[in-house]
Amino acid sequence: MFTGLVEIIGQVSEYSTQDTSESGGNGVSITISKAAEILGDCHLGDSIAVNGTCLTVTEFNKDSFKVGVSQETLRKTNLGDLKAGVNVNLERAVTSDVRLGGHVVQGHVDTIATIISRTPDGNSIVFEFELRDKRFINYIVHKGFIAVDGTSLTVVDVDYKLARFKIMMIAHTQTRVVLPQKAIGDSVNIEVDLTGKLIERQIETQLENQLQNEDSALQKLVNRLIDEKIAKLKA
């Protein structure tokens, strides 16, 4: 679990699509440098969020660490677009003594979004994004939380028809995350607030249980409406 409060900006020093080393696992691996600040207490197998994607450390030294990336992660995120020299947001998994200053972020990216616009507003910047997978707009609400490249941000506007939303980034945050370094047309990783998905599942389960119960209020209502419809057709 993460908080969405980016600790440092690291830099991709190596991106391999066929890493045959033991730590690479004969797959895609990313080595990230300029990360000394968060590696003092690092262990093999630790989780670090890279642009909001929870990845497992397979190798590290004082300044850099390596992670493997599965094909499923490549399909869901923009990590496949990374290359040497690109900066990335980094956050270690939380411990019991960490304050939850952002919101609960799993590091399980739901989809990617494209930067549609960036507009100055005083010393802040308003970013607008369009989701690749439109259905996730249903979990985004005005003044709700969202993780953009692992950064916990507040939604300031939502367009459900176009699957677009906006966030405002204050000056303090602009110097500590990678989003201001990106241009219109670039992609970002999106993780919607888990709360919305949990509520949806609870409602679905409740409805399913009631529909399967002949004595439930919902099933009786459905039966009554069907009977009324049939009666009208016969009249």
Rank of each mutant, 00 (worst) to 15 (best):
T111G: 04
N213P: 10
Q206W: 14
C54S: 12
A183P: 09
E72M: 05
G25R: 00
F60L: 09
G80V: 01
V192D: 06
V57K: 02
R164K: 15
F136L: 08
G68K: 02
R164S: 07
M168A: 14
H108A: 08
G40A: 01
F127D: 05
E130Y: 08
Q71P: 02
E204V: 08
V192A: 14
K234D: 01
E208W: 06
M1Y: 07
F127A: 05
H103T: 05
A35F: 01
T175L: 10
G27Y: 00
S13P: 07
K182I: 07
Q181M: 13
V192E: 07
D41H: 14
A147R: 04
H43C: 10
D215A: 15
D41L: 12
F129H: 09
L194C: 10
K234Q: 08
D159K: 11
G85Q: 03
Y160N: 12
I8A: 07
N89R: 01
C42L: 11
E128C: 06
R99W: 14
Y160R: 12
D110W: 01
L90H: 06
Y15N: 06
D227L: 11
S23G: 00
C42S: 12
F127C: 06
V105R: 00
A231L: 13
I116P: 03
V28G: 01
T95L: 15
V12N: 03
G101P: 05
I116E: 12
F65L: 11
V12K: 03
Q71V: 10
G45R: 00
Q212T: 08
M169G: 08
T175K: 14
E37R: 12
T175N: 13
K66F: 09
I9R: 07
G122V: 01
T173L: 04
R164H: 02
E228I: 14
L79H: 00
H142K: 11
F129K: 01
L225S: 15
N213I: 05
K220S: 11
S216I: 02
I203G: 09
N51G: 05
F65C: 00
V6M: 06
Q18C: 08
T58Y: 08
